[in-house]
Every structure is written in C-alpha cells, then in structure tokens.
C-alpha cells in the first residue's frame, strides 16, 4: 500500500459519500446519470466477485463490500426513490451504453491476463468498462451546460481517484521488480484522460471560490 493508492481509495469513497448525500440525503437526482451509476454497479459486481474466494486483506475486503453496496444503493434510489425519479432526467441521460458494454465484453474475452480463467475475462471486462463508465455522466453534464456544485465535487473526486491510481502504478512500477499491469495501466490512462476537459472547467470555476457552479461550453 502506498500513499497514492490510499488517497485514491479515499477519493473514491468521498465520491460515493458526495453522491449518496445528494441522492439519498438531498433526495435529488438532478444532473446525475443513472446509466453511469448502473455501469459502475456492473463494474464492481463483476470485478469484486472474487470476494467469494479471494482474501487479499481486510481493507480490500471491506472496501469491496462498501463499493458494491454503495453503487447498488445509488441505482436503487435512482430507480425507485419517488423524489429521485421526479428529479431524474431520463431524456437527457441518453448515452447509448450498449456501444460501451458490448466492446468491453469482447475485449474482456480477447485481451486478459489468463485466457484459461473465466474470472480473468470478467475482471478485464470490468476494468475496460470502468474506463468508459463516466461517459454518460459527462455527456449529461455537457448537455445541461451548468453543473450543480455537489455534482461537480462528486465527478471531480471520481476522476481524481483513478488519476491517483496512475501515480500508484508508477510508484509500484519503480519500487517492485516484476510489477506490470498493462491492462489496468492503459485503461486507467483512458479513464483519466476522459476527465481532462472536466478537470479544466472545474479548476476554472473553483479557483474563484469552492461553491461556484461549473460551466461547460
């Protein structure tokens, strides 16, 4: 464990807390993409299925349970919460996710770390899907033009988590002899690159004060 990975996990937890605060606490799903929330639930339920047989550490175990629980809770409230449904904009949340899920599934089967193990294929699928899962959310924000304060912090924390993981991978590559995870590195790079535009506008709007809303052109 290194500081980058720890901060990355904390940033990921923060993004969940912000989103739960908005959706469950604030009873509002305005500006939030259900499609992204559902893809994240798929990402965690597929990647962490090794909870059933793999025990790397208590920290890992607990966070995996937390991420699965939080992502399913968010989808549940966005789908069945009365006030959340009322504030969720299904027409604008229209990114064709089948064009994301299908290619990731094909890639997961073709490019993974052990072709003999079905879990490796599912795991690779989850890594690829996570890289593009944010697209419907960014698409929705782009459409709406203005990003509500809490939502902007949620997206920022979510983007920061994988950016911090990039530093973690560089650190591990330099300090551990035979450490290589090309699949994760490339996917993490793509994932973080998708946030660059948002990061820029987030920084522009927040440098004038943390509670200014983010404007996307």
């Amino acid at each position: 464990m290194n500081i980058f990975r720890f901060l990355g996990d904390m940033s990921h937890i923060l993004s969940f807390l912000l989103l739960l605060h908005k959706i469950v606490g604030g009873k509002s799903a305005a500006g939030i993409s259900l499609r992204t929330a559902e893809m994240y639930a798929i990402v965690f339920c597929t990647r962490y299925i090794d909870l059933l047989w793999n025990f790397a550490s208590l920290y890992n175990y607990l966070l995996k349970l937390l991420f699965i629980g939080a992502s399913l809770t968010i989808v549940y409230f966005m789908r069945y919460g009365p006030s959340q449904k009322a504030t969720y904009n299904a027409d604008e949340d229209a990114f064709p996710v089948q064009y994301l899920i299908a290619p990731c599934a094909v890639l997961g089967v073709l490019i993974n770390q052990d072709h003999s193990s079905p879990f490796e294929m599912v795991w690779a699928f989850s890594i690829y899907l996570e890289a593009v899962a944010i697209l419907p959310q960014l698409f929705l924000l782009q459409k709406q033009g203005e990003v509500e304060n809490l939502t902007s912090h949620y997206v920022f924390a979510l983007g920061a988590y994988r950016a911090l993981y990039l530093l973690n991978w560089m650190f591990r590559f330099m300090t551990e002899p035979d450490y290589q995870q090309r699949i994760v590195w490339l996917s993490g790079l793509v994932q973080t690159a998708l946030y660059c535009d948002f990061f820029y506008h987030y920084y522009q709007s927040k440098k004038g004060g943390l509670n200014k809303s983010v404007k996307l052109p």
Partner: peptide
C-alpha cells in the same frame, strides 16, 4: 496463485 496475488488492488 499469481493471479490472486496480483489482484491486491481495488
């Protein structure tokens, strides 16, 4: 075993 060890990240 290698595969499992490798999966020490979230």
């Amino acid at each position: 075993v290698l595969a499992d060890v490798k999966k020490d990240e979230l």
